[in-house]
Structures are given as structure tokens and as C-alpha cells.
Design a protein around this nucleic acid. Structure first.
Length: 438
RNA sequence: CGGGGCGUAGCGCAGCCUGGUAGCGCACCUGUUUUGGGAACAGGGGGUCGCAAGUUCGAAUCUUGCCGCCCCGACCA
């Protein structure tokens, strides 16, 4: 993409409403614009990142055997009345009526709807287990939306639902999602730690939150240091799943609300880690909580009827955009992990209009695209300093600086955004180096 | 929802106390000189001062009501 063709409204100054790094940088880098409290317009650069994260989440769900579908944002109150949640959910649920005064709501989650859908088709244990998911916008009328996309009222969530014949099978489904989450966060360049969690209004007796460590996190967390550095498990056979899950859950990890100081004290002192965390995922096994009131059951092999055992599994996709920035930035701007960067590499033309500089940039730009990369070419007629500052702000993993000074030597400057390391390379070396990074 | 704060140009702010018809920096447009880490000079465009009532000869400024937004706390992806 040529910058002169793109829509990238960057701000030099930080809007007063933003108080944390991710919110400030998302506004300044032209990723989002607030429309009203907790509701944001996703501008082109922000949407690119959102989509990349969404796709990684999707790929890992698919890899774990989950099947994608799509449920609507607007739901009928009927299913919620059936489970009793229409009253239980409270003012966080946005309730609306249609022209016929029928009660509708903007979905804050989808257990009720999917249970209704599932029960109407599935009648036999032979059709289980199943895991269905969708990635859809949610609305929760938060008391206090804040921190940009970290706690919006409208947000994009991946929510998966598992259906099993009994608890033993449901725990397997739970473990499979647990492992998928570890793999997902690793691909996003994040260190996420699973922590035993309260089940809250969704209900159930087995639940974990996944938190990434960041100073600005809303939760205080206590955990065994080894959890932070564990590599993601990758593909795990059915037989090994429980061991992988146990390897995490056997180490101490809790948010402040579940924290047990006495248990934490048993962790070796040099392994005790207390920090701030951002919740980026939450998984639940809740058994028959919805299948019971909604009579979602199957016939078992012995001809009896059994309520389906269910679980639900959420990832805050839009929150992750902010979460990744919180975990990866410096004073100059965002530092995107390669997997989610809006563009792979930036080309800075230090002298737009200069025939030689233009030609060199154009050639490299074409070559990078031909190599399958997604470069952003700053072809604007701005001064160098401005281009450097803007490129640092939007945080592409690599910057290639091309200007008269380097061209005299036949060299480009290649900068690693994360380390700040600069190297002087020939055009051929530049192409080889950059393509080797992806 | 309790407590606090704020609404003046796209962004950051001053002006309000003590009423006289709106200003600064950045951004934007034109020109000139510039160009390797957010250039300089000159000229220029852009505002029903959140909305509505009221007080007054006169309201950004005083009064009342409403709306919106942010921050701190209790809850959530």
C-alpha cells in the first residue's frame, strides 16, 4: 500500500480522553475513533490488525476441531426467559423492542441461543461430541466502559460452545479448548497464563481465565514464574491432553479474587510472581446449567435420556488488539508482533520526488509484494523526521530507509522496530533479509 | 451506580473569577527556502464556544435544566 493512497489519520498529540498506552497509541496511529462511550469505529489500520488476530483465533479453533458458524447480534428474549437469564442478566444487557413491541436484545453472549439451536437437531449421543463457535460482535452495557477497546461496550468475541454426553467427555472438550488457547496466545506473540477462575453469572464448576501480563492490567495476579515461560504445547493427542493441562494447573496461578495467600506462600520464593494482568480469555465447563432448563438432551446407548453437558469458551478478539499493545510498545509507539502487524514492513522514501530515490523505493516495493509480503510505502512528500516518527508510531516490525545518502553507497538502512537495531544493506541483501523474516 | 472532573477549530489548550461578540500551538491550504529523526518564513481557510431556557442593552463568561465525555471505586471477553 502506498501511503498517499491509504487512509491513515495519525495524530501528533495524544487525545486527552486516553490514559493508557494502548488507547493513546490506537487513537494516535489512526486505528480507531470513538463514536460514543465504549463504541468505536475501526479505521483501516485498526481493522487490519483486528482481522489478523481474528484469523489466528479462527485457525487455532479449527485446528482444535471446532466448527465455525455465525449467530446474529440481535436475539429474541424468548430463549433468555427460558433459562431465567433474561431477569438474571441485569442492566448490562441492552434490551430493545421492535415495531411490534416484541422484546429483543443485543447479544452479550450466546449460550441460550445455541442451546436452542442445538437441541432442535441433535437427539442422539452418536452426534456428540461437537464444538461450535462463532466470531461475532457483542454488546454489554458496561457500567463504566474505559481504556479504549480494552473495555468497550461493543466488542468482538470468539465464543465456542461444546456439547458432550457426560462430564468425562466434557472435560476432554474443555481440555482441548484450554490447549487451543495456549497455542492461540503464543501465535499472537503473547505470554498468557491460565488461572483458576470464578464462574460468575455464566455458572459452572470448572473455569479458567487466561491473562497476559502487563503493568496496566485491571487484575492483580499471583502465579508461579514457570507458567510465564512455558512454550505452547502445539498439537496434542487426546491421550496427552490431561497431562498438558495438569502441567499448567498444578502450578499456582490466581487473580486477586481467587487468591489464597497461604497456598501462594508454598511456591518457592524465587518463583513467586505477582503482577498485573489483562484477561483475554475465559473458559467454562457448566454442565447441565442450560441443557436442564432448556431440555437439551440426547438418547444414550442404553436408550435413556441424558442432558447434554456443555461448556463455553470466550476470547476477547478486540480486547486483544489493546492487550498486545499494552504488552508490546515503547515511548515512540507500538511494536507489533509479526503475526498481527498491519503491514509487514515499511519503506521510507527520504526524498520523494528524487528520481533515484523514487525508483529505488518503487522497485523494492514491487519486489516485496511479489515476494508475498504486505509493505507500506511512505511515498509522501514529508520530511524524514516526520516519516520516522510516524513509522515508529504505527509499529511495523521492519523499516527500510532509502535516501540519497545511502544510495550513494548503494545501501539501504534496515531497522528492526523491536530492537532498534539498524543495518546497512545492499538492495539485494535487503530483499533477502526481509523475506527471510516472514 | 457512588465520588471527582471536563465540554471553546481536526488534536492539545488559554480566555470564564471581574459580561462588551473568540485566541494560541499543532494539523490543514498557497508560496519561497529547505529536506538523514516531528523545518523556517510569509500569506490563508476553518468555531451557532455541547444543547436549551433565563438574567442583561449585551452571555464562551452569570443562573437553571438537559445532554455528552473522562477519571477513581464496586463488576466483566
Amino acid at each position: 500500500m502506498r501511503l498517499t493512497d491509504y487512509f491513515l489519520p495519525v495524530l501528533k498529540e495524544t487525545p486527552a480522553e486516553a490514559t493508557i498506552a494502548s488507547h493513546q497509541f490506537m487513537l494516535r496511529a489512526g486505528m480507531i475513533k470513538q463514536d460514543s462511550a465504549g463504541i468505536y469505529i475501526w479505521l483501516p489500520l485498526g481493522l487490519k490488525v483486528l482481522r489478523k488476530i481474528e484469523n489466528i483465533v479462527r485457525e487455532e479453533q479449527n485446528r482444535a476441531g471446532a466448527i465455525e458458524m455465525l449467530m446474529p447480534t440481535i436475539q429474541s428474549a424468548g430463549h433468555w426467559k427460558e433459562t431465567g437469564r433474561y431477569d438474571a442478566y441485569g442492566p448490562e444487557m441492552l434490551r430493545i423492542t421492535d415495531r411490534g413491541d416484541r422484546e429483543l436484545l443485543y447479544g452479550p453472549t450466546n449460550e441460550d441461543m445455541i442451546t436452542d439451536m442445538f437441541r432442535s437437531y441433535v437427539k442422539s449421543y452418536k452426534d456428540l461430541p461437537k464444538c461450535l463457535y462463532h466470531i461475532q460482535w457483542k454488546f454489554r452495557d458496561e457500567r463504566r466502559p474505559r481504556f479504549g477497546v480494552m473495555r468497550g461496550r461493543e466488542f468482538l468475541m470468539k465464543d465456542a460452545y461444546t456439547f458432550d454426553v457426560d462430564k468425562e467427555a466434557a472435560v476432554k472438550s474443555y481440555n482441548r479448548q484450554f490447549i487451543a488457547y495456549l497455542n492461540t496466545y503464543e501465535r499472537l506473540g503473547l505470554k498468557a497464563v491460565p488461572m483458576r477462575a470464578d464462574t460468575g453469572p455464566i455458572g459452572g464448576d470448572l473455569s479458567h481465565e487466561f491473562l497476559i501480563l502487563a503493568d496496566t492490567g485491571e487484575s492483580e495476579v499471583f502465579c508461579h514464574k514457570d507458567l510465564v515461560d512455558m512454550a505452547a504445547p502445539g498439537d496434542v493427542s487426546d491421550g496427552d491432553m490431561q497431562a498438558v493441562v495438569d502441567s499448567r494447573t498444578s502450578l499456582y496461578a490466581a487473580t486477586d479474587e481467587m487468591h489464597d495467600a497461604d497456598e501462594f506462600a508454598k511456591v518457592p520464593a524465587d518463583k513467586q510472581l505477582s503482577a498485573r494482568g489483562i484477561e483475554v480469555g475465559h473458559i467454562f465447563y457448566f454442565g447441565e446449567k442450560y441443557s436442564e432448563p432448556m431440555k437439551a438432551s440426547v438418547q444414550t446407548a442404553d436408550g435413556k435420556s441424558a442432558n447434554i453437558h456443555m461448556g463455553s469458551y470466550g476470547v476477547g478478539v478486540s480486547r486483544l488488539v489493546g492487550g498486545i499493545i499494552e504488552a508490546s510498545h515503547d515511548e515512540n509507539g507500538i511494536i507489533w508482533p509479526k503475526a498481527v502487524a498491519p503491514f509487514d514492513v515499511g519503506i521510507i522514501n527520504l526524498k520523494s520526488g528524487d528520481a533515484e530515490a523514487d525508483a529505488a523505493c518503487e522497485t523494492l516495493y514491487s519486489q516485496l509484494k511479489a515476494a508475498g509480503l504486505d509493505p507500506l510505502y511512505d511515498d509522501r512528500d514529508d520530511r524524514g523526521g516526520q516519516k520516522f516518527a510516524r513509522m515508529d508510531l504505527i509499529g511495523l516490525p521492519y523499516q527500510i530507509v532509502i535516501g540519497p545518502r545511502g544510495l550513494k553507497e548503494g545501501k539501504y538502512e534496515v531497522k528492526d522496530r523491536k530492537t532498534g537495531e539498524k543495518q546497512s544493506l545492499t538492495p539485494e541483501e535487503t530483499l533477502t533479509f526481509i523475506t527471510a523474516q516472514f
